[in-house]
Amino acid sequence: PPAPAYFNQETLQQRLLTLIEGARETWTYAIFWQSSVDVASGVSLLGWGDGYYKGCEEDKRKQKTTNPATAAEQEHRKRVLRELNSLISGGAGGSSPDETVEEEVTDTEWFFLVSMTQSFVNGAGLPGQAFFADAPNWIAGADRLALAPCDRARQARELGLQTMVCVPVGTGVLELGSTDVIYQSLELMNKIRVLFNFNSFEIP
C-alpha cells in the first residue's frame, strides 16, 4: 500500500511550492515542521520535514543597503555553504565547479539554512507554541517579531524578516516567512487548510 501522503517528501515539496508560488503575497519561504515523539524519553518534538525557499531577486540589493553582514560573517556563511555543497555533491565537486557557492549568502538564505538544524521540544518556539495550542500564530511587523517570546522570531527579525506565520496542519506545523509586512488573510488560511489536508493523496 502507498505510504501516507505526509511521509512523501515529494508531495510535501509540491504543496509548499504551490502555496508560495501561487500566493497573492510575496512569501520568502515555507517550512513544514514534522511532529514526532522520542520513544526513549517521551519528549514531543517538532523537527524539519521539508522547506521551500523562494527568496527575492532584490534580496541582495536590499541586504547591501539596509543590513550588510560583516565580512567575517559572510566568510563564515560561505564556508558553511561550501562544506554543505561538498557534502551534497559527495566531495567531488560535481562535473563542473559551482561558482555560485562563492556568492554572498543573503540574510534570509542563511535563516532558511539555519532552520534545517533546528527542532522544538515540548511546545517551545513559535512552531511549538502553535502546535500545542492548536491555533495559528500570525506575527506581522518587525516590532511584533522583536517582542515575540521566541528566539527564532527574534532571529528572523534580525535577518530581515517582517512576517512569520505558524499554522498547525495535520502532523505538524506550516511556517511561512516574508520580508514584507503581510497581515492575516482568510484566503491564505483557507488555501493552507486545503493544500495541507493530509488525508488527501492528491495535490489540489
Binding site: Q9, Q13, Q34, W48, G49, D50, G51, Y52, Y53, G55, E57, K60, L81, L84, N85, L87, I88, D98, T100, E103, E104, E109, F112, L113, M116
Partner: peptide, 30 residues
C-alpha cells in the same frame, strides 16, 4: 559529521540547486 538525515539532505540539495539557478539567471554579482 557528514551524515545528514534524508529529509534535510533532499531539502538542502533542492535549496542549493535552486540557488544556483537563481544566481545564474541574475548574472555576475556586482
Amino acid at each position: 559529521n557528514g551524515d545528514l538525515p534524508m529529509a534535510r539532505k533532499k531539502s538542502l540539495q533542492r535549496f542549493l540547486e535552486k540557488r544556483k539557478e537563481r544566481l545564474t539567471a541574475l548574472g555576475p554579482y556586482q
